[in-house]
């Protein structure tokens, strides 16, 4: 009996060893809250989900953006553990009332991934406004894209919770479009070799910080953690105990009655 049981234990132990969690990263879904920046009136929510195959699924829903306009958006930060966060108005070093992209970068970090609608997603596409999502007539923006693991900078998935999402494009003179009359020409675009781009188009409108995380792939239904094999054990013990007590009582009664009868007969 004991021998076959030992034989069984070995493969089970081996299987357990193999099943021990490895260094593979946990799938998880990181929730990002996009907060208004530069009094833009815009806000939103985003979800970054690390998929089984190492790809990154990004989903963004924003409201209150400049309508019918493209909004450059990026993951900012780094995978080297730098402590970036979202800027407040104190980052407006030139005092024009707006935190520009250059003024924000020391706080939220450099462009890590450009969240374009198609094609390249590297830092080089940071100002590729022709491939950036466009807010609808009501200023709502909806963005969904899965970026292949090969196109992600090293350490992206590992540092998802350290990254920030920044959406650009404000409307300083409230005419529902980007124009040079608002804040003048974009110094950022100019330094990148693009002239005539309004500063309104490149100033940040929202900055997103991680607000929570969830299970990456939700299991279906409940969890089958039990086969009921010991649930009746207590009842079995109670039954056996009760029978034994009854038998003891029976013996006592029978013995006493017999001795009683006998002693009476002897008299």
């Amino acid at each position: 009996m004991r021998f076959p049981r030992t034989l069984l234990t070995v493969p089970v132990a081996a299987a357990l060893l193999l099943a021990t969690p490895t260094a593979a990263l946990a799938d998880e879904s990181v929730h990002v809250k996009l907060l208004e920046l530069n009094n833009s009136g815009a806000s939103g929510n985003a979800t970054l989900t690390a998929l089984d195959n190492g790809d990154l699924k990004i989903s963004i829903r924003s409201t209150g953006l400049v309508p019918n306009s493209s909004h450059a958006q990026h993951l900012h930060g780094s995978a080297t553990g730098m402590d970036f966060h979202c800027p407040d108005m104190s980052a407006d070093t030139n005092g024009n009332g707006y935190v520009s992209t250059e003024e924000g970068m020391p706080v939220y970090g450099d462009i890590f991934v450009s969240l374009t609608t198609k094609g390249d997603t590297s830092k080089a596409s940071g100002l590729a406004v022709d491939r950036m999502p466009i807010a609808d007539a009501k200023g709502n923006l909806s963005y969904d894209r899965t970026i292949a693991s090969a196109d992600l900078p090293k350490g992206t998935v590992e540092h998802l919770k350290d990254l920030h999402i920044v959406e650009h494009g404000v409307d300083a003179n409230s005419n529902d479009k980007y124009d040079l009359d608002g804040l003048g020409e974009s110094t950022l675009a100019k330094s990148a070799g693009l002239s005539g781009i309004p500063e309104e188009a490149t100033d940040p409108a929202t900055c997103g910080m991680v607000s929570g995380a969830a299970v990456g792939s939700v299991p279906v239904g409940g969890v089958a953690t039990g086969d009921g094999s010991t649930r009746d054990r207590a009842a079995a013990w109670y039954g056996a105990g009760g029978l034994a007590l009854l038998a003891a009582l029976g013996i006592v009664v029978v013995t006493r009655r017999r001795s009683y009868v006998l002693s009476r007969a002897q008299r």
Binding site: P21, A24, A26, D27, E28, S29, V30, D52, K161, V210, G212, A213, A214, V215, G216, S217, P219, V223, T225, G226, D227, G228, S229, T230, R231
Partner: peptide
Amino acid sequence: WYTKAPTPGSLGPAVLAGHVNFHGADGTF
């Protein structure tokens, strides 16, 4: 430990499952 979820101690819900009983033995949970 359910591997398609955060690791214990990091942001989010880490999930551990254990049997109440299994194959005639009381489970760890």
